[in-house]
Design a protein around this nucleic acid. Structure first.
Length: 213
DNA sequence: AAGAGATCGTGTTTACATCA
DNA sequence: ATGATGTAAACACGATCTCT
């Protein structure tokens, strides 16, 4: 069993859940612990000798014609099957079996393709998730830096305002809620945070936010 | 309703081909 | 030459459908 086949099998349940239409009905899982050992039927009790019962590969021409018919229709009407069988010089039963097996191969191939597509999509999603997570970390870092800076500035302002009558002109954020994105990062509110840039350039309202956008 | 027969999907076995 | 492995044909079996 190839690795890919194993991998495919591991995902069959998932795929069949996502694409329930692929299965027309579910055959109950057989107990694999007691794998049955069936007795081979004697080909309907025919008088065929052992050599006649031997499997023969279908010729290229036979397979070609069968493939052509399969391309047109995946299932055979009984009449069509008989006609095709006599055209190919085969037993109608052989034609039926060939179509049965061909449908199984076709379905397996479809499942493999579907699996590959889903795998590609999944890998893309995982990559995007990683990218977003690292972006979140970066933004958190920026936020921490900004908070540190704010704290430093606040301390400076406190030092100045304690002996300055101009303290009333400083924009106080005391009663304001933090902006939504700060709340998202756990900032609950402001104590006595004051925002300003440089010596005399006060920022009004939420304009300071533009510095970090 | 019920039984028979055909056919289906799925899983397994077997014969054969290919390759190391 | 030979053993391992892959593939296709054939088969088994339960489910479902159609017909009578």
């Amino acid at each position: 069993m190839t690795t890919q086949t194993k991998e495919l099998e591991d995902h069959m349940a998932l795929i069949s859940q996502m694409y329930p239409g692929l299965y027309t009905h579910v055959v109950p899982q057989q107990d694999k612990s007691k794998a049955r050992r069936r007795q081979r039927k004697n080909k309907g009790g025919e008088s065929g000798s052992a050599s006649e019962a031997k499997k023969r590969k279908l010729s290229d021409e036979q397979v070609h014609l069968l493939e052509l018919n399969f391309g047109n229709e995946h299932k055979l009407e009984s009449e069509h099957k008989d006609r095709l069988a006599s055209e190919l010089g085969l037993d109608p039963r052989q034609v039926a079996v060939w179509f049965q097996n061909r449908r199984a191969r076709w379905k397996n191939k479809k499942l493999e393709e579907e699996y590959s597509k889903l795998k590609t999509v999944h890998e893309g999603v995982v990559l995007e998730k990683c990218r977003l997570e690292s972006e979140v970390l970066k933004l958190k870092d920026q936020l921490r830096e900004a908070e540190k800076e704010i704290q430093g500035l606040t301390e400076r302002v406190d030092g100045v305002s304690s002996n300055s009558p101009c303290s009333s002109s400083v924009l106080s954020m005391e009663a304001m809620d933090p902006p939504p994105f700060l709340r998202e990062f756990g900032v609950q509110g402001y104590d006595q945070d004051v925002f300003y840039i440089g010596q005399d350039n006060y920022i009004h309202g939420l304009e300071w936010m533009n510095l970090y956008m």
